[in-house]
Nucleic acid binder design. Structure first.
Lengths: 340, 340
DNA sequence: TTGAAAGCGCTAACAT
DNA sequence: ATGTTAGCGCTTTCAA
């Protein structure tokens, strides 16, 4: 059977409370010898605290939820970018002795339910739309701490961590402008007036304005962030946008798909058309030409998110406000000067 | 405050047990009207069961652990293959109303600890070495169900799901042999006489034997399964193995790295050297030349693993024995006939 | 420095 | 068809 506090207490001839205090490192509440003896017995018996019991009694679980978008009950294709983040998050949380509940979210209410069901100490939201974040938090209990990664949602209960998407868009545009490109196609998922993609688009446009250039806002394509959709766009690019000499895609896989589509239709990258991606996945150096992209520091993003969340949980830190992390251009072979 | 069974019971004028039965769909234990009324009140109050309390009282948690290797506390780089699996596992488990505890394992004991701490109903081990699996299960309580994915560990408490790695190795070799290759380099991580890589190696060798050919067993390179290590090998391949005309790598990223290294050293794929990978990641079609590889059905693997685990948990099914899933060759552009 | 009592929210095993 | 009792293993609160 399970080894309990009571078992240890009996063996040691003390009360369960003393054992509990020792186990929890409440060192001020037991004599050194008692501590030593109890620790010994606990080790000997292979005692493992019951997280459920602790969570029930203490109303805190040392477990946080990591929530990712799931189109529906039938799918959970985690985006490459979120995948990279999850690994880092788990590591950071494990270092701090928090457990991770991984959950795909198909309907808004599920966040609040999971939170209350397990008495989660906090939640990490990965890559949800700002509207979705708002929905989750509306229903969520007031106490729980929530950090939204890659979100610009502005509300009282959520804290955000994200890359500087606006700067990312601007830098991408500046790079292409410096190469002489003027007709640049913006490609990304459908977006509203907020959120990651919108920021990138705004930064992108800013660079044109700052350069005193008028941008033709018809040069936008909205599609799913997948390789296949990229290929499709690449194939018809020349036909649909004959003037375009460069493309800025809001995700690397998308950019890589576009490059493939272009190749298939006889358009050379970067000679005929330059392509810039976003994220700097490992992938970028696997493909030919290697992809010029906007790099964001994923490990830093994860570390920051966890740091903020744990800070709020443990020290009831003043919500320090959203954090925006720097990005930078990684120039590779998919961009070049415009053909004269 | 939290809404409890008691709150509902009071409002409905019944005992908590009746409410409990209704909530748990124990339909035989309450009259239709009572059920209706209680359900109504529960919805109204926004009742969410406490998983901790349930887990404590019922000694079952409806939560399973998904464990992945973590080199140490400092890292958790989930392999691309495991990444693909995790998403599928979560989906399958969510469909069956199980929660997922995601955990990187740095030291053997952590599996048993997590299992007991949360009263987990079962565990899914992803891509551990057979020796590691043995260690975990040795320390684990007898009751818990464990399914090891990508393992050949043979022990009483574990059930395995894996691709037919032996066939995979054989098929890869047969493909290359049919193209006229005789000096084929086997590349993979260090392996012992068991496990996934060993199976692939054995299958690989079998094909040579079956063809009545003597294989030079010096044609083996052991290195980490990473792109970078692949590049390094590719660069020195010609110098170290001048006779080799084809390479079989046990992972796609590795194969892709090798192709890059070969390119850098002026060796053409597939004209000079053919390359075969393993897994059939999305990646394979992004690179040039596209990678010929052994495909395994990841979704099926995840579905099977969950099916087996849940089967054991819920029906105490007779451990049906390990399951091996089929693989097949996906021929792309990285392999061609040997140069005469 | 230590302990006793009470209860977290739920369910198993009997009653009725 | 419904209720009672007695915990699950732990922590909180108060007392010694």
């Amino acid at each position: 059977m399970r080894v309990t506090l009571k078992d240890i207490a009996q063996r040691a001839g003390v009360s369960t409370m003393t054992v509990s205090n020792v186990i929890n490192g409440n060192r001020a509440r037991a004599s050194p010898e008692t501590i030593e003896r109890i620790q010994q017995i606990a080790d000997e018996l292979g005692y493992v605290p019951s997280a459920s019991a602790r969570s029930l009694a203490a109303r805190t679980s040392r477990m946080v939820g990591v929530f990712v978008p799931a189109a529906d009950e039938e799918s959970l294709t985690i985006s490459p970018h979120n995948v990279a983040i999850i690994g880092q998050l788990e590591r950071e949380l494990r270092k701090r002795a928090y457990d991770v509940l991984l959950r795909g979210i198909a309907r808004p209410g599920e966040v609040a339910t999971a939170l209350r069901s397990w008495n989660l100490d906090g939640a990490l939201l990965l890559g949800f739309l700002d509207e979705e974040v708002a929905l989750f938090t509306a229903r969520s209990a007031g106490r729980t701490r929530i950090v939204a990664v890659d979100s610009y949602a502005d509300n009282p209960v959520t804290l955000g961590v994200r890359a500087d998407d606006h700067a990312g868009g601007r830098i991408a545009a500046e790079h292409l402008l410096a190469l002489g490109h003027r007709d640049v196609l913006f490609v990304g998922p459908r977006f509203s007036e907020a959120g990651v993609v919108w920021q990138r688009f705004e930064g992108f446009r800013c660079a044109f304005t700052a350069a005193g250039l008028e941008r033709d806002d018809r040069l936008v394509e909205l599609l799913n962030t997948t390789y296949d959709d990229g290929v499709t766009l690449g194939r018809r690019l020349r036909a649909d946008h004959p003037s375009v000499t460069a493309v800025f895609a809001t995700a690397d896989v998308l950019a890589i798909g576009i490059m493939e589509g272009l190749r298939e239709s006889g358009v050379r990258v970067p000679d005929d058309v330059s392509v810039v991606g976003f994220d700097d996945l490992d992938l970028c150096v696997y493909v030919r030409p290697t992809l010029t992209t906007i790099a964001q520091d994923i490990a830093a993003k994860a570390a920051t998110a966890v740091h903020m969340l744990v800070g709020e949980i443990e020290h009831e830190d003043q919500p320090s406000g959203p954090v925006t992390l720097g990005v930078h251009l990684v120039q590779r072979m998919s961009t070049g000067p415009v053909r004269t």
